[in-house]
């Protein structure tokens, strides 16, 4: 703080009209910053328009019924990949939510100020940004190799590992916003800590925690790299035991987009449109959810 105020004082105090150099520097900064922001918005718009343009021409009701076609087969759809993606994402979130919420609760409630909690928080932040392809390799070693083949379970676990840090982080942040007086009031009534947490803190932070789960869903729904070596992809409906690979949208898009077949590419665009719109919708809903809660 001192350094800043000193450096401000050391700049020669200009009296009277603003010098031309200062004026120019200021204008340049404003224009450049505004241009950069416009560029960011422009790129998002460009990507969305490209998806809409390429995707809508490929979309038709029939692709939501038919399965992905084999090489050289005409027509086909994305139904199996769509359902497979839903299953994998659901599986990932179902595994990640209890673990993430409990871990976040530990960090915010039990581990306040402890060294262990600090280490876990730090590692969690690292995992939040860890390359997702390495998580794919990890789950490959952990599940695919021992189980003797690709499976939906491995895909679900890989997605869960990506989702957990997101949920831990938001849960902890949201629980920290709950005023301590609420907890104290519960404790004063003689409620044990677990009851205070479940009936008071969680309830007060519910909207924020749901937002965390929604954001985690949005994050894993489009993840491709961790599924490459775990759930893989195929052109069939998933088997009831989820073994032997499960068709899913991200890997299907990856394989089909780079293929030489025109109908495969069309399906990749359709899949890309579906997945991006759902993820963006999820992110927006999550944000609105939090905003509504704050307004309350």
């Amino acid at each position: 703080m001192n350094a800043a105020s000193q450096s401000v004082q050391t700049t020669p105090a200009p009296w009277g009209r603003v010098r031309r150099g200062r004026y120019v520097a200021d204008r340049v900064l404003r224009i450049i910053c505004t241009l950069f922001t416009a560029l960011g918005a422009f790129v998002l718009g460009w990507i969305l328009l490209m998806l809409l343009y390429e995707g809508i021409t490929a979309l038709s009701p029939s692709i939501f019924v038919a399965t992905t076609p084999g090489p050289g087969t005409k027509g086909g759809g994305i139904a199996n990949a769509l359902v497979g993606s839903l299953i994998l994402t659901f599986l990932g979130i179902a595994v990640a939510t209890p673990i993430g919420v409990m871990a976040g609760t530990y960090l915010a409630e039990y581990g306040k100020g402890s060294k262990l909690a600090e280490v876990i928080r730090f590692i969690n932040d690292i995992l939040l940004a860890a390359p997702s392809i390495l998580i794919g390799l990890f789950v490959y070693t952990l599940m695919v190799r021992p189980m003797g083949g690709y499976s939906g379970w491995a895909g679900g676990v890989a997605l869960a590992i990506i989702a957990v840090p997101v949920i831990v982080r938001t849960t902890e942040d949201m629980l920290r916003l709950v005023p301590g007086s609420l907890r104290e009031a519960g404790a004063a009534l003689g409620a044990p800590m677990s009851t205070v947490i479940r009936a008071i803190t969680w309830r007060a932070a519910r909207a924020g925690m749901v937002t965390g789960v929604l954001l985690a869903t949005a994050r894993i729904a489009g993840e491709t790299a961790p599924l490459l070596f775990t759930a893989l992809n195929n052109n069939f409906w998933f088997k009831p035991n989820l073994m032997g690979g499960v068709a899913n949208l991200p890997v299907m898009i990856y394989q089909f987009a780079l293929s030489p077949y025109e109908n495969w590419r069309q399906l990749a665009w359709a899949g890309a449109l579906v997945i991006t719109l759902s993820i963006l919708a999820l992110s927006v809903v999550a944000r609105l959810f939090l905003k509504k809660d704050k307004a309350r």
Binding site: G40, W46, A218, T224, P250, T276, I279
Partner: peptide, 20 residues
């Protein structure tokens, strides 16, 4: 929100945009 949505777009979509 726009800038944050840019972060939510899956990386495979950036790949397709980049390539095509």
């Amino acid at each position: 929100t726009t800038i944050e949505l840019l972060a939510a777009v899956p990386s495979i979509i950036y790949g397709m945009w980049g390539l095509f």
